[in-house]
Design a protein around this nucleic acid. Structure first.
Lengths: 157, 157
DNA sequence: CCGCCCGTTGAGCACTCTGCGCAGCGCGGC
DNA sequence: GCCGCGCTGCGCAGAGTGCTCAACGGGCGG
């Protein structure tokens, strides 16, 4: 098992700055050979370091600018079936199992509050769902980022 | 202002299937000219359709497999300063303003529960933070996805 | 201490892809 | 009917890719 080293971290950092960068560009930026860059990239790739491209697609551009978090309380034993039903709702972009009072936390994107209301209703219609608690995200105060973490690891390595 | 059309949606779909695909590959897959692909891609790009590359980096590979949601209640007027402080914690990967009882929802990645505990403590130390409520994500039941939404729009267009 | 293994390196090769400009064409708006 | 725009195919020079190769160096076990 190979673990992430300083070179990998530098690579991730460079990639974050310019996701479209070519192998050669990355190589000369980091001062290493392009063969090495390709090798590292491949290694990261099949270590599963890169998540789906979907994560980079902005739902706002798709006409769904609103994000809501819905906590769902369910009959525990029906969990699998319920998740299956949730997966059929296109506006459900993500779902987590959840410690605490609720059992499920669902991330939902929508056109407007009315749309959200209808999605919530759809979720409530799923058999086994007991109650939902919706909260609206009012602006992404810190946009998703991993770089500070990368920097920290980089310094620590 | 151009809005997203069927070609763009197909492009996003193809891209999701193979994020590394070349312009030519995408072109022949969609049966359009490579010039068009390049043009569309550029247009999507500066329409802001693509979010930061960070979103594709798996924190788990960075040694932070745990994800937690922390709801924070704050003195409203101190919000900006508090967010600034939160931004200095590398493990804070994202933060939303929040409707409902809490004012802030923070997404945090960590090595283990002990690590989480220390991060929570750090947040509580920030001046103006009144209380926090942490819940742990127990598995990503539906991994982040936009494709179903893309498909839906595609059919509707 | 020696030899082996592994990752890195630079070089070289054929091939593909890119970025660009260009002219033609179909379609909707005026 | 005319204009403008976006799509298209073409072609070019230049850059990048995937691959292989031999050489080098550090780390490790024998």
């Amino acid at each position: 098992m190979h673990s992430i080293d300083a070179v990998d971290l530098d690579l991730l950092r460079a990639l974050a700055e310019d996701p479209g960068a070519t192998t050669v560009a990355l190589a000369q930026r980091l001062g290493i050979s392009r063969n090495t860059v390709a090798a590292r990239l491949a290694r990261l790739e099949d270590a599963g370091a890169f998540l789906s491209f979907d994560r980079r697609i902005d739902p706002a551009v798709l006409g769904h600018p609103l994000l809501a978090f819905i906590e769902i309380t369910v009959h525990q034993r029906d969990l699998a079936r319920i998740v299956e039903h949730l997966a059929r709702i296109p506006e459900v972009v993500q779902a987590y199992g959840h410690s605490g009072t609720a059992d499920l936390r669902v991330h939902v994107v929508c056109r407007d509050t009315d749309h959200l209301f209808r999605i919530d209703a759809a979720i409530l219609r799923i058999d086994g769902v007991e109650r939902t608690e919706t909260s609206l995200a009012m602006g992404e105060l810190i946009p998703y980022r991993v770089q500070p973490l990368v920097e920290k690891l980089r310094r620590g390595t």
